[in-house]
Design a protein around this nucleic acid. Structure first.
Lengths: 132, 132
DNA sequence: GCATACGTTTACGTTAACGTAAAGTGCAAA
DNA sequence: TTTGCACTTTACGTTAACGTAAACGTATGC
């Protein structure tokens, strides 16, 4: 027996509103091969999986990734046509490389946070010294 | 008495080689108002402070910041023409906003790291199952 | 029947962040 | 002196990631 609960679907406009992007952007990601929603006639219909992929892309953008990089990442998550040992090994290498990049970004964030702390200190100091 | 030790200086080529960027890039940052090195005649001469600013820009790039954003950040670090209370208060607001963004990026990194962990698990699992 | 709202494709426009090439300057070694 | 290297300016070219506009289908309410 299959589940009776119909899975939720979204229109392009609904997703755009929810994620605060334009429909143009969503269609562009599809053109770039990052999404491939179902079609009901001409109209695009997005599944929960499509929505997840879209959110992953937006998360990548917040981290400064290019669409190409996000596509790469998402492909690592989904175990699709990766069957032979050489391919799996290549994926492991890619994962390791990404990990190194993320570690670098983490260090960069921490350094920036610390400098913001110091800047705030100096700022508050200047304000307190400003009171005659 | 002033320090007798002459402070180190760099040519544009030296900095480019050290930081693995092109001289074009460094000049572009100057055009955008992110750097303003001394000149000896026509030739640019970079101080340790210039070098720090350049490194800050590159760190910003690794975090996906635009040059505009990096310029903003660097201005927060250097307490230049910020004298009156309104300006200082505005800087504090900017600092807070940056902090929020960095916190979001940190969450994004952690989520990505975790998904990489899971992807690696599945990958290794697939490899072990591949041994007949 | 017609406006309104949503969807579609096609296509040209825009911006940031450089790349690349041309043409010239200044100095040091051969 | 000329060759070569590093520096300079000017200016046009390029790419990613969309924005924007035109022109068109389709359903829904009045």
């Amino acid at each position: 027996m299959t589940k009776a609960t119909n899975k939720p679907r979204w229109s392009i406009g609904e997703l755009a509103r929810e994620l605060d992007i334009t429909t143009r952007t969503i269609r562009y990601y599809e053109d770039m091969g990052l999404l491939s929603p179902e079609r009901k006639g001409q109209t695009r219909i997005y599944s929960p999986a499509d929505r997840v992929r879209l959110k992953l892309i937006l998360r990548g953008k917040r981290l400064g990734f290019s669409l190409e990089e996000s596509r790469d990442l998402i492909e690592m998550y989904s175990p699709d046509g990766t069957n032979n040992r050489a391919q799996l090994s290549a994926v492991l290498d890619k994962i390791e490389a990404r990990r190194a990049q993320l570690a670098q970004q983490l260090r960069d964030i921490q350094a920036t946070q610390q400098e913001l702390d110091e800047a705030e200190q100096r700022c508050r100091q200047a304000m307190s010294e400003l009171e005659s």
